[in-house]
């Protein structure tokens, strides 16, 4: 493999990992250009969107394309790519080591375990319900709604890999639980329990990135992300609306 091939491969891999795991485009653009400059290419041509990266080196015949099909959220990987890029800039690791590190971190970065995430989801639901002015009586109902809703979302996302359906079913379940608890006199306000339970499903990463991308001039990616956030929000709303319509 020639040096230029290695540079292009490393850069495309770094870009793919960052975009797949929820980095904003300005950050991706900055990191990739920086890697190319540090590898000795003065004027790299890189074009990236949320669904693919194109890169070429001036005065070379070949350009390379890297399609990006799946999109998940794992900000630790984004941060690790960033750290490696800094180490490469400071000359602590060579380009080859950089590439090997990327392969390694893409496979073996630890995620918080499912149980810890479940506890986190319960905490998010309960604390936000209190912050929005809910009563202390609804804590148990909110904890159940948030926990079961998030488990449903997680299982459908990981096992069946269908987006939007997972949000829809999870919010439907949350609505049912809220209605059930209030009917059984174990909770007081359906609204507060539902809002709290839905909070862990909020598409925070697409919302934030959509805003940042649009302001940074990456309109294609920004609009794609805004669409993603809007569809997630609509799926959640549909789930809740179903509960109101039929229960």
């Amino acid at each position: 493999m020639t040096k230029n091939d290695l540079i292009i491969e490393t850069i495309l891999m770094a870009g793919k990992i960052m975009i797949e795991n929820g980095a904003d485009m300005a950050r991706v653009d900055d990191t990739l250009t920086r890697i190319a400059r540090n590898a000795g290419i003065d004027n790299p041509k890189i074009f990236e969107t949320t669904t693919g990266i194109l890169m070429s080196i001036p005065k070379q015949a070949a350009a390379q394309v890297e399609p990006i099909q799946k999109r998940t959220i794992d900000l630790e990987k984004v941060s690790l790519v960033n750290q490696n890029s800094r180490a490469f800039q400071d000359g602590q690791i060579s380009l080859n080591e950089f590439r090997n590190n990327l392969v390694k971190l893409n496979i073996s970065t630890p995620f918080f375990s499912f149980w810890l995430q479940l506890i986190a989801a319960v905490i998010v639901s309960v604390t936000l319900m209190i912050m929005y002015g809910g009563s202390w009586r609804d804590i148990i109902a909110t904890a159940f709604a948030g926990g079961l809703g998030y488990s449903c979302y997680y299982l459908i996302n990981n096992r069946l890999k269908i987006r939007f359906v997972s949000e829809f079913l999870a919010s439907f379940l949350i609505g049912v639980i809220a209605v059930l608890f209030v009917r059984l006199q174990l909770g007081s306000r359906i609204g507060m329990i539902t809002i709290g339970g839905v909070m862990p499903l909020v598409p925070g990463v697409p919302i934030t990135n959509a805003v940042r991308d649009v302001f940074a001039g990456h309109f294609l990616s920004g609009m794609a992300r805004a669409m993603e956030a809007l569809l997630s929000a609509c799926a959640i709303g549909m789930g809740i609306a179903f509960v109101f319509r039929f229960l």
Binding site: R27, L75, V78, S79, N82, G191, V198, G204, V205, N209
Partner: peptide, 26 residues
């Protein structure tokens, strides 16, 4: 020395207009 989105995504969540969105759906 970490990317900025690590800090502003989780911090933004309490500001999400959940209450108004809920009323709209209802």
């Amino acid at each position: 020395k970490m990317p900025m989105i690590l800090f502003n995504i989780p911090s933004l969540v309490p500001l999400v207009p959940g209450g108004q969105a809920y009323k709209a759906v209802r």
